[in-house]
Amino acid sequence: MHDPRFPTSPARVRVRRLLGTGLLLWLASMAAAATSTISNGSTDQLVGTWHGRSLCVTAKPACTDETVVYHIRRTRPHEDVFAIQADKIVAGREETIGDLSCRFEPLRQLLVCPMHGAGWRFRWDGSSLVGVLIDSDGSLFRVIQVQRSTTGPGRP
Results as ranks from 00 to 15, higher is better:
136 S>C: 05
110 L>V: 01
71 H>M: 14
144 I>A: 04
102 C>G: 03
82 F>L: 01
79 E>V: 08
21 T>K: 15
44 D>E: 13
114 P>D: 11
131 G>E: 10
78 H>G: 06
108 R>F: 05
54 S>Y: 06
124 W>H: 11
106 P>E: 15
86 A>R: 15
62 A>D: 15
141 F>A: 06
143 V>R: 09
10 P>H: 14
99 D>C: 03
90 V>L: 03
35 T>V: 00
93 R>M: 04
60 K>T: 14
6 F>E: 01
6 F>C: 02
85 Q>W: 03
60 K>R: 14
63 C>R: 10
34 A>Q: 14
72 I>E: 07
136 S>F: 05
17 R>A: 12
42 S>A: 07
41 G>I: 07
86 A>N: 13
134 I>Q: 11
121 R>Y: 04
124 W>L: 02
101 S>Q: 11
65 D>L: 02
124 W>V: 01
139 S>C: 06
145 Q>R: 13
4 P>N: 01
117 G>L: 02
54 S>G: 15
48 G>S: 07
37 T>Q: 12
47 V>P: 15
143 V>E: 14
139 S>A: 13
4 P>A: 03
37 T>S: 10
12 R>W: 07
64 T>H: 09
20 G>S: 11
50 W>I: 02
139 S>V: 00
14 R>F: 00
108 R>V: 01
102 C>P: 10
130 V>D: 13
3 D>Y: 00
38 I>G: 01
52 G>F: 07
94 E>S: 14
30 M>Y: 10
51 H>Y: 05
107 L>H: 12
134 I>T: 15
70 Y>N: 11
40 N>E: 05
53 R>W: 03
10 P>V: 08
35 T>D: 08
126 G>N: 10
124 W>Q: 02
51 H>N: 12
65 D>K: 00
82 F>W: 08
43 T>S: 08
49 T>W: 02
103 R>H: 13
121 R>A: 10
27 L>G: 03
29 S>Y: 12
92 G>W: 00
43 T>R: 01
146 V>N: 08
7 P>Y: 01
111 L>S: 12
48 G>P: 03
128 S>V: 04
65 D>N: 13
123 R>Q: 08
69 V>R: 10
40 N>M: 09
70 Y>C: 01
5 R>T: 01
33 A>F: 06
113 C>Q: 03
86 A>G: 05
5 R>P: 03
128 S>F: 09
